[in-house]
Design a protein around this nucleic acid. Structure first.
Lengths: 227, 227
DNA sequence: CGGGGGCTTGAGGCCACTCAACGATAGTGG
DNA sequence: CCACTATCGTTGAGTGGCCTCAAGCCCCCG
């Protein structure tokens, strides 16, 4: 953890805008870039939260483990997403790169410093925490009360919104990751996808099973009972 | 909803301290008191969030429903707890009084006004949202990966921390409420409690099944695999 | 071209759910 | 104060949805 290779200083910290900063307003805040190899840890649960991250390219999973190895993924972080933002001292999840992933990172300390004087930044940090809360609240409903088919349908709809390009959902994560996100086993996820395929709701692109095209978004949505 | 009887103005708004205000610093903010009868709705999901609430006496459940009636309770609010705090415009859950419940309520508008000028208050609001997020994160792990026995054990340990008086856990909620909180059925909850009783981990007080005494807290904790 | 990881599919098992009966309790109204 | 009723909780029997275990295929990658 925290084994970091040479990083290049980003000359134009454009994604500071996501915290509510323009490049002119706060040229003090340093923004670094770093690439994690597939499967490596970005930070561990209960480690001190020193940085906040934004995915530039790739994908990250945030998860908790039980003592016997059972895993619950709380969220996937995709390009543009900010993760690792904590209010307390330590991280609440372990974060791992699902594929080779490039992130922007910013010292938490400097971010807090700016937030103290810039209300706009503080408001944006609050908004991000709120968004995380909303996602967790919706996910509790899924984990507590939805069937396997409903969970997988909901997952596809979420991914469709978040990472579809050219009509194709290019999933970066494995069936096991999906299963641990949805509170299922990988076999159950696979079966649910097969069923949706049979129903003509989705199709697979090429030879890989990670590229999915939604053929009938409306029908898919009907499998995920909304609240 | 929002059928409100005569409320008496509280002369000493002592619980404003929970937002980081002393009674001297902000005598402007009005704090009302109101009592909801058992089973009545405090607010509904997607209703505009006009007030923030603090439980003075009683208990409240916050839940989401699926279209077919499946229910997921996200949290129980017990005396001292603040609930209904939203960043967005609308409530994310429906809130109902589990038993006759007295709350303090404060206009959201006035709270936001104070937060704008008082950093301490703003920080406390942020902290409350963070606490809610942490609870939801832990609950995702429970709902996604724990067995029925582990869930019930975790529930008892949570309630033990939050509402034990004189060594007795006086549960305000029914088995159905517990089940909908834990993502189980009421029968499964009942069976789990019976098993824990057989194991000598807990006992029931009196004739009611809502008063529980923990006989072996350590053994109970061993049933809930920690992460 | 061999090895390994990822995915699918099948067979069987088990844990939690469903359905049902029953007792106890609390609330209601005569 | 006592039926009457509704609600709550427990327990049993049986079912079923998801899990477990296993085999086999495909693809990637050395």
């Amino acid at each position: 953890m925290f084994v970091r290779m040479a990083t290049d200083r980003s000359p134009r910290p454009n994604s500071l805008r996501d915290f509510g900063m323009t490049s002119e307003s706060n040229p003090i805040v340093s923004l670094s870039e770093f690439t994690y190899k597939k499967g490596t840890e970005v930070y561990g649960e209960k480690e001190p939260a020193e940085y906040v991250y934004q995915v530039k390219l790739g994908a990250v999973r945030s998860y908790k483990l039980l003592a016997d190895g059972r895993r619950q993924i709380g969220a996937f972080h995709l390009p543009g997403d900010i993760f690792g933002l904590e209010n307390g001292e330590a991280h609440r999840f372990t974060a791992e790169a699902i594929v080779d992933t490039t992130v922007h990172l910013i010292r938490r300390q400097s971010l807090e410093l700016v937030a103290k004087s810039d209300a706009m930044v503080a408001k944006n940090l609050f908004g991000m925490t709120t968004a995380n809360l909303h996602h967790a609240e919706d996910h509790m409903l899924l984990l507590g009360r939805k069937t396997s088919l409903e969970r997988v349908a909901a997952f596809l709809l979420e991914m469709d919104k978040r990472l579809t390009a050219a009509g194709v959902i290019a999933l970066p994560m494995s069936r096991r990751d999906i299963a641990d996100y949805l509170g299922l086993t990988l076999e159950t996820v696979s079966r649910a996808l097969s069923r949706l395929h049979e129903f003509g709701v989705l199709g697979f692109v090429g030879n890989t099973q990670r590229q999915i095209v939604l053929l009938d978004r409306l029908k898919l949505a009907s499998f995920d009972l909304q609240n």
